[in-house]
Design a protein around this nucleic acid. Structure first.
Lengths: 233, 233
DNA sequence: TAGATTGTTAATCGATTAACAATC
DNA sequence: TAGATTGTTAATCGATTAACAATC
């Protein structure tokens, strides 16, 4: 009988996991495509308001500075079919994109950490239709508790546990200090949260089935500053 | 003599441009790598404060949930060499990363559009060291002009032209309404701005030498909502 | 020395781009 | 019909991952 070495075992387990993972990810839309979709939606809504009934992929590509073939491929995820020589129906496309992205219905969310960034996101969302609506914010600071920001109450952190029992909220926005992010995230998962929009710099360690969307401003700053540096040399 | 058809000409010009572009981009660090670097920096700073002198790529990869080979490759851009069986010197790495990213010196920036998101970024930056410091904000709204937010004056938009003459600011943060973004961006370029951190949904049309870093919150919302949807089916 | 880790080079993987037939 | 545009399939490109020699 052949005895695996430890390294072999690990490799085999890794491969199996990857295969399973990949299978469940099959026919999922790729992240680059998903990130481009809101851009199409915004542009198409503008165009539609201007009264255009149809628009071709080359026209869209020209406006958004990307390859027409890519536009065709990206838009195909909505299931909407275009007509040769005519293009796509702007109304149909807008509608399908909103539905596909989940921007057409209200996705309720909790927000934890009513600091600067937290406050900003609370105020911001009133004006942008991200499809995500913060219904309650939580903080531990006595000064912040009781405040109204952008029409949202800031509640005591402990109330999270009660409230999550009553409401079926699946999304949480995490804007706490980095040091407590992991701890808070675990609480959120225990409260039934399925997806965390993480604005902290902490790398969260959570069960595989929890969706974590890391959004670090410093990544963008890094690209901008480095490109500026490159261009000057 | 062979006469090109128009399509051929366009194709050839495109190819030439791409070749030139690529040449100037040669040995530039890729965007995915750049976006990961602040994560390494943040983690290494924490680790260094805890007193660790050396750290290996596998240890970093484990903490940040990414491939050790990728860690090695990413960190190689700093020029810091690790020692086999020992790893990298945490102090050297932190220092080199900060320098490489431009986070070690103050990069002055203007901010245009002191709305919700603008205010947030003004307050936020005090606490995070993104390497970018807003030294003045501009708005057209009478109510906002004269306010102090996060220690930053909100000035009348027209003052931008005077001030940019005196100061050598190269970076601008754009948080205006979408409708005026293009117009403001052109003003900024005329004022000598070289890099624009664009938080609007408008696709800016600017000279090739201007660096535009698009940062749309809705892209992240799109990925999060879609993944949540996928996981539920 | 033995073995873990670096660093480089090759293989793989996935996304973008190109090519082209189908079609309105 | 002619020709622009869709939509699919193939080629290219670039990033990630794997393999392995060098080295402390």
């Amino acid at each position: 009988m052949y005895i695996f070495e430890m390294n072999d075992r690990i490799k085999i387990r890794k491969k199996t996991m990857n295969a399973t993972r990949k299978n469940s990810l099959k026919n999922q839309v790729s992240e680059p495509t998903l990130k481009r979709l809101p851009g199409y939606l915004f542009f198409l809504e503008k165009v539609r308001e201007e009264g255009l009934i149809n628009i071709s992929a080359p026209t869209i590509g020209n406006a958004l500075k990307c390859d027409p073939t890519q536009v065709v491929k990206d838009l195909s995820v909505t299931g909407i079919k275009g007509k040769p020589r005519v293009g796509y129906n702007t109304y149909e496309l807008c509608h399908a994109l909103e539905e596909f992205l989940g921007f057409n219905h209200v996705n309720e969310a909790f927000l934890v950490g009513a600091g600067n960034l937290g406050n900003a996101l609370m105020s911001y969302q009133e004006h942008q239709t991200l499809g995500i609506k913060v219904i309650a914010a939580f903080d531990v600071s006595k000064e912040k508790i009781g405040q109204h920001i952008g029409g949202i109450h800031v509640l005591e952190y402990n109330k999270l546990f009660h409230l999550s029992n009553r409401l079926e909220v699946k999304i949480a926005i995490l804007t706490t200090p980095n040091e407590v992010a992991q701890e808070v995230a675990e609480d959120l998962v225990n409260c039934g949260i399925k997806a965390i929009w993480n604005f902290t710099l902490t790398n969260l360690n959570l069960p595989d089935n929890i969706i974590v969307q890391n959004t670090s401003m410093s990544s963008f700053a890094a690209v901008l500053l480095r490109r500026l540096n490159d261009s000057e040399s």
